[in-house]
């Protein structure tokens, strides 16, 4: 018989077990525990209910709960996996994990597909891309002529919409991303590889007890 090591992590009532979450993600158990401290802090900033609502998410990101930002809204909607208008701890960790350098390209590709499929139709439609483009231009106070936007959309769909049905399906998106890998650049946050070192300020009680049996 060899010497077995078991990991005893804290239990968080009402939230998923950190060991289970670590086993499903690229985060270690101690990193998941550190993320719990962060989650707790964000989730009690407006309503102390153990869940992150959109205002709390915006407040954490921008220090302003009313700031409108389309990209942040979309990220919140995707983190809100259960579509309840709030993010629970398990979904917070699993969603952050997609941005981890060690997460698979498949996960990142799928996340970006859902990011642009704003109406959840299973396709990225021209109207959705146009809406996002215009909203981001407005937020950036940049101006592009309508004709220029249409040309950009024409060329994009000519390249990505291989079957020419006016919308981009999942397979078409995967192929398009393979040809344009820069589109996944926003999906990898290098600092997630070592969050407890990069952001020591949010780590309080995250030590893990290693018990030899």
């Amino acid at each position: 018989m060899g010497c077995l090591h078991s990991t005893a992590a804290r239990e968080y009532p009402g939230h998923e077990n950190p060991v289970k979450l670590a086993s499903e993600t690229a985060f270690s158990v101690s990193e998941v525990e550190a993320l719990y401290e962060l989650f707790k802090s964000i989730s009690c900033s407006v309503v102390d209910d153990g869940l992150i609502n959109k205002e709390e998410f915006q407040l954490a990101l921008f220090k302003n709960r009313k700031k409108e930002n389309l990209f942040a809204n979309r990220i919140f909607d995707l983190f809100d996996v259960k579509r309840k208008g709030v993010i629970d701890f398990g979904d917070f960790v699993r969603s952050l994990n997609v941005f981890h350098p060690n997460a698979s390209l498949e996960e990142k590709t799928d996340f970006t597909f859902r990011l642009y499929d704003m109406d959840c139709t299973g396709y990225i439609e021209r109207q959705e891309v146009k809406q996002m483009l215009i909203a981001l231009l407005c937020e950036s106070e940049m101006k592009l002529a309508d004709d220029t936007i249409e040309v950009i959309l024409d060329q994009t769909f000519e390249d990505a919409d291989v079957d020419g049905d006016g919308k981009i399906g999942k397979t078409e998106w995967s192929d398009f991303v393979i040809k344009n890998p820069s589109l996944l650049k926003i999906m990898t946050l290098p600092y997630l590889r070592d969050i407890t070192t990069t952001f020591p300020s949010f780590v309080f009680n995250s030590e893990v007890d290693e018990i030899a049996t």
Binding site: A72, L137, I152, I186
Partner: peptide, 25 residues
Amino acid sequence: KFFNAFEFISSMSSGFDLSSLFESK
């Protein structure tokens, strides 16, 4: 060079940074 709509969106959203979450304490 052809600049596709998604590259455009990615570049414009580059100011969005989840790292702010970690500095929220």
